[in-house]
Design a protein around this nucleic acid. Structure first.
Lengths: 409, 409
DNA sequence: CGGTATAATTAAATTACTTAATACATATCA
DNA sequence: TGATATGTATTAAGTAATTTAATTATACCG
């Protein structure tokens, strides 16, 4: 079952790696010529011609007519074929489930969301998920000959991807008994990949928000808790049992108040929606001015709109998050930190505050080498998109198996 | 200059990757049969025969006679040929320089150390380094036809490996002007690799202290400061500009006292030789019993010998280090944490204390998946050894270029 | 208008691996 | 004890994927 790919290289695996590489490069560029691919990969133009012919035959790529590059010569543009394949994406959360359909280039083809006023039992949420997936499959916004390649699922962390089964470590009870992978696989007969939501976000930014080809990226989700997806040297890093990136309970003050996890001074105690709301309320009480915000999210949107009191409250969260991110940067030395989830509602203002706070703690050369910004899409969409990327990456480990040539059908 | 290898795969790069893989596997096992190599790599036995013949011709491998494996059948043992090639290693530090010669299997062939009572100016230290290297090269403990492949240098961190030049960020002045790479390359005409000392230690443990083939390893050096070498998915992780692993200034108490770095509550303020000595002295004063220890190192060796007071002082350091390592484990989810440098003088007792402290802060499944131990060799030797591994890894990126077949001379 | 540079294709050559056949040694079992 | 099965290693032929080299095509430029 757990037959991990053996590390040896032969003609077949070389071809598969080259296919994966080329798909990744085209995805990053949008449109690219064969000549550029040859330059980027180090392969000859002849090989690129040969491989791309294969990929066009497999329905992965298409030509987009001549494109004028920097040189004084037009070339044939290559792009991902949006019409032949699609990937189903699911994002599961406590009180909602979202299902979407994505083209291989990350284009969202449709999206359906089921929300619940209260976090429902797993079974209810899953039934809704099936309903939405059935709905998408029953009304595919695709040509008749298009195929759905598989299902990528983003799950709220932390969880343990041990032996295919998912064991939610925190959160609602009942999830540990659910074999989501098996249920989806059995119902739809498609490849299924389960992934941590922060990892999905990181993958989406790596593939579709990253034209500069940065390869050391931190995707930080901050809301009630804090979690991160880590890209090391261009690859998602999961750690030994898959829990890498659990930064919310990083201790930043061992003399601090006790966290619900049992420890003291976890980062989440200083930067969270609850704490933001409390800080805002305290400021409101002090000053007596400013509009009363009903929820932490109101504070965040007010801050985005320039509300002074909301910005002051947010400044505190950013200051603490800066400490945590400085720790992370000292450890991982990333090139780019992307802020997502609820705190990203406050927009680039929050990113700028956090960046400034973080850099107060860093040595100059390290501080100069890293930047902080918010995600290129809404957090929801980036996670949903990333779930499809996660599945695509899985397929691209054995592309000739999952993406057949026209003659092979 | 910085012509990083292009990512495309062809027959030549496949072969080079297979060579690197096989050398790594043999190094990890010591002795291994062709059949086992075939099973581990996924290549056919015929290919292994073909490749190993090539590697024997290149002087990398040799046969060691029949070996009885687990199966009821003897096979021909393959091992690294110790007699044909060697690698020079250098470890540079404030007040000493060590030069050594290593076989490709990590065997130390000789070692020479130059110590200074006070940290000398860079020029003086470098002249001593050249002296020791010349000494080794003038009296090679190797057959006449053996070749030295290159020089690996371990440098105290943190530093910036920007464009080949080394810029020491902290520590003694004058180092920023030294172009160590160029000097060594010019003087000896050999490939030179410079690497952070903690990264060298991590590489040594990955290659030579790791028969279980763990691929997520943290090598933590604790002495005056704290630094780490990070192995992610079996590969050394350096980060964007090469400063990953600078964990000494991780903030664990933002309300704490100011560190010389300007921030508050850095890990180094709670776990360091200076702090250990202070803690020990305070305990000594309180109790009035126990032998007076002259230095922090005395405290550590006393603790290793079972001295109660030294152990109590050490327990505090371990407690704080545990907080830092718990943070690291939440972020990186390693399988193995290796403690090295001065604090490792206290032996497994210190590792056990630290492990216990760390695990108090971790969720059970994560705590169960990680273990803490000290390095398999002395820190000095593991760093020196790792410097040679660093060079070997560099050569194995283009093995056919650096390791010629007999016909090619 | 022809020279030059770039893009893409095609056919032959090359490389490195796989497949298949063979040799040979040892353990198991009748 | 000897036949059979199993496992290791080698050899020769076959194959897949790339490179090399030659060819065509297009646009800029003098």
């Amino acid at each position: 079952m757990n037959s991990r790919r053996k590390p040896g290289n032969n003609a077949k695996t070389s071809r598969e790696k080259n296919i994966a590489l080329i798909v990744k490069l085209i995805n990053r560029s949008g449109v690219i010529s064969r000549a550029e691919l040859a330059a980027l990969t180090g392969l000859t133009q002849a090989s690129i011609t040969y491989i791309t012919k294969d990929l066009i035959d497999r329905g992965l790529l298409c030509e987009t007519g001549t494109v004028e590059g920097k040189t004084h010569h037009p070339s044939i543009g290559l792009a991902i074929d949006r019409s032949r394949y699609a990937i189903l994406s699911v994002q599961i959360n406590r009180s909602y489930v979202t299902a979407g359909l994505y083209a291989l280039d990350g284009t969202q083809l449709c999206k359906r969301t089921g929300t619940f006023p209260e976090p429902p039992p797993p079974r209810v949420l899953l039934d809704r998920m099936f309903l939405e997936l059935d709905g998408i499959l029953g009304d595919l916004p695709l040509p008749a000959d298009a195929a759905v390649l598989g299902i990528g699922v983003a799950l709220p962390g932390p969880f343990l991807p041990a032996e295919g089964r998912i064991e939610l470590m925190s959160g609602a009870p009942g999830w540990a008994e659910v074999d989501l992978h098996a249920e989806l696989k059995e119902r739809y007969g498609l490849p299924v990949v389960l992934e941590h939501d922060a990892n999905c976000g990181a993958l989406a930014e790596l593939w579709h928000g990253n034209p500069e080809d940065r390869s050391n990226i931190l995707y930080v989700m901050a809301a009630d808790g804090i979690g991160a997806g880590i890209i090391c040297d261009g690859r998602l890093y999961r750690g030994h049992i898959g829990t890498a990136g659990e930064i919310g309970h990083m201790c930043v003050n061992f003399t601090g108040p006790r966290c619900e996890c049992g420890n003291r001074g976890c980062l989440e105690m200083y930067c969270s929606l609850r704490r933001l709301k409390a800080d805002y309320d305290a400021l409101l009480f002090e000053e007596g001015t400013g509009a009363a915000a009903a929820t932490a999210e109101d504070v965040l949107t007010s801050a985005a709109a320039g509300d002074r009191l909301a910005l002051r409250a947010l400044e505190r969260s950013a200051g603490y998050l800066g400490i945590g991110l400085a720790n992370l940067t000292n450890i991982l030395n990333p090139e780019l930190i992307i802020l997502a989830d609820k705190f990203a509602l406050a927009g680039e203002a929050f990113a700028a505050m956090t960046e400034e706070a973080m850099k107060r703690y860093l040595l100059p050369p390290v501080a100069e080498s890293v930047s902080v910004r918010t995600a290129t899409q809404s957090t929801e969409d980036s996670i949903l998109c990333g779930a499809s990327v996660s599945l695509l990456e899985q397929l691209l480990r054995e592309p000739t198996r999952y993406l057949r040539r026209s003659a092979e059908f």
